[in-house]
């Protein structure tokens, strides 16, 4: 009886929890609601509901092209990050070598460095190399900053995996590569795929670093949105944001089905 009492949330705790939930959801809800306004400026509350600002997106070619650029950038950088992070994760998880901790720390370091500092460094680097405005260069730096996410999820999948099946394949004559592709890769696929989706989202959402290297021809959606929000009150930002919220929720469901959202968000093993 007494155990049960301390195991339950009291009324004050529940009230606190409800208030916090409101605090967390309020800014997202308000964006979605404001996007259906028919006014010329962002207003809450409003009287007339309309889809005007959704039609307006279609009349803003620079937002549409920024959207597709962000999609291509996120797709390419998440893929490149997986290509380099999966072998690195295998090296770190399965080998004991001198410098292993240093390699791990180096590959995780983009998470520690402020993105403003990375943005500054890439801006300088691109201008020296003549890469300013290059989509390919943006893919490289986006891949770099999302590698830690891919590495972390792939490592979690490799660590604790039995090597029996792989050893059996090898002793039956499979080459290293075949053993990897047919045995190991399918086993770690949930981690790799979950990492890919997380990298995609991180790249798609990245604004602080990208704002330094984006040029008029390589403006991503968050950067375009940032400029519109920071300098004028433009209701089309609310409809674009609503599309982004809906898109993220869809991706969250995908992530939940592939690896489990708790694993991605909390880092549970």
């Amino acid at each position: 009886m007494s155990n049960k009492r301390i195991d339950q949330n009291g009324p004050i705790a529940l009230a606190f929890h409800v208030l916090l939930t409101v605090f967390i959801l309020a800014p997202l809800v308000v964006v979605v609601v404001a996007s259906f306004s028919d006014k010329d400026f962002i207003s809450m509350p409003f009287d007339g509901a309309s889809l005007r600002w959704y039609r307006e997106i279609l009349d803003a070619p620079e937002l549409i092209s920024a959207f597709w650029l962000s999609i291509r950038l996120a797709f390419a950088s998440a893929t490149l990050a997986a290509v380099v992070a999966v072998p690195a994760a295998l090296a770190i998880a399965r080998h004991r070598f001198v410098g292993r901790d240093a390699v791990m720390a180096f590959l995780m370091s983009p998470m520690m460095i402020p993105h403003v500092v990375l943005g500054v460094a890439f801006l300088r680097f691109f201008s020296i190399m003549g890469w300013t405005g290059s989509f390919f260069a943006m893919v490289l730096v986006h891949a770099l900053i999302v590698v830690p996410f891919s590495l972390r999820l792939t490592l979690a999948a490799v660590i604790g995996l039995e090597r029996d099946a792989e050893n059996a394949a090898r002793s039956l004559g499979a080459s290293r590569f075949v053993a990897f592709r047919r045995i190991l890769l399918p086993l770690i696929m949930p981690g790799v795929a979950g990492g890919w989706v997380l990298c995609f989202i991180q790249s798609f959402d990245e604004v602080t670093m990208t704002i330094f290297v984006a040029t008029p021809g390589t403006t991503t959606l968050p950067v375009a949105l940032y400029h519109r929000i920071a300098f004028l009150s433009d209701p089309v930002t609310t409809s674009v944001s609503t599309v982004m919220i809906v898109g993220t929720v869809v991706f969250m469901f995908a992530l939940d089905r592939i690896v489990g959202l708790d694993k991605v968000l909390i880092g549970k093993k």
Binding site: P27, L28, I201, D205, V207, P222, L225, I229, S241, T248
Partner: peptide, 11 residues
């Protein structure tokens, strides 16, 4: 956490 910080800030 997965929704763009620009969107949250707009809210």
């Amino acid at each position: 956490l997965l929704i763009s910080v620009v969107v949250r800030t707009l809210g």
